[in-house]
Design a protein around this nucleic acid. Structure first.
Length: 226
DNA sequence: GCCCAGGTGGGTA
DNA sequence: TACCCACATGGG
């Protein structure tokens, strides 16, 4: 299993190269982006991030002091703005109340404890929690998204019920616990998925997996199927 | 006008 | 457990 997972990883890396995720300046910005991008196109998230930056509010204390209505107005382009404003304020409340306003103290927790703490916060589910651990705390926690589940089911590496934690375990139990590897792997899967989304083709002719490894055809079907 | 995007949580059976 | 639905904007 380890060899198969690394085989696919190398195919993607060879085709696309390093993705240099997460596209953010600081750990705090990673967290803001992770919440804002829930069920939302990243382009829309970027608009909200730009609004926050231009208002000089893209920081812990900035958002903390911002009235809910004003925060909602700034992040409106990212959609679900009422929910997301509440989630941002709630998350910052955690840092203020339990970590003395010091984000680094939260991120310094051991992975298991950090993940548990994150999952207890309203609006932080498994994907958002793992994104924060991997891309903000720089610790190994594999990020699973809908595409990951579909691709790896279709190529036959996942069987039975498709569940977040089972998919995550497939990677974490079969790959070395390396932050950089998890980082690139998830980013490359998203990169592959975006290529298919743009083209909207049932099967692609230039899929990197199709070109360089035996999983190509089924992976492509996995991307576009139900 | 319709579909989708780097999800989450509450309700119901 | 397994669905169903609300949440909302912007691009193709």
């Amino acid at each position: 299993m380890t060899d198969r997972l690394l085989d696919i990883f190398n195919c993607l890396l060879q085709r696309f190269g390093p993705q240099h995720w997460w596209p953010a300046e600081t750990p705090f910005e990673v967290i803001v982006g992770a919440i804002l991008t829930q069920n939302t196109n990243w382009k829309n998230v970027e608009k909200a991030i730009i609004n926050l930056r231009q208002a000089d509010m893209l920081c812990l204390h900035g958002i903390h002091q911002l009235e809910t209505g004003k925060l909602e107005a700034l992040i409106r382009p990212s959609g679900f703005f009422r929910q997301k404003a509440a989630r941002l304020h709630s998350f910052i409340g955690l840092i203020m109340n339990r970590f003395d306003g010091d984000l680094d103290r939260l991120l310094a927790l051991p992975v298991g404890e950090l993940r548990k703490t994150l999952l207890e916060q309203p609006g932080i589910g498994p994907e958002t929690a793992d994104s924060i651990i991997l891309y903000a705390a720089d610790k190994p926690s594999f990020v699973v998204d809908a595409y990951t589940q579909r691709i790896f089911s279709r190529v036959g590496l996942l069987s039975g019920r498709i569940e977040y934690d089972r998919t995550r375990a497939l990677f974490m139990e079969n790959l070395p616990r390396q932050t950089e590897l998890y980082n690139e792997y998830h980013a490359l899967i998203v990169r592959l998925a975006k290529m298919h989304c743009r083209k909207r083709q049932p099967l692609c002719s230039d899929c990197p997996l199709l070109a360089v490894c035996k999983y190509g055809q089924t992976a492509c079907q996995g991307l576009t199927g139900p």
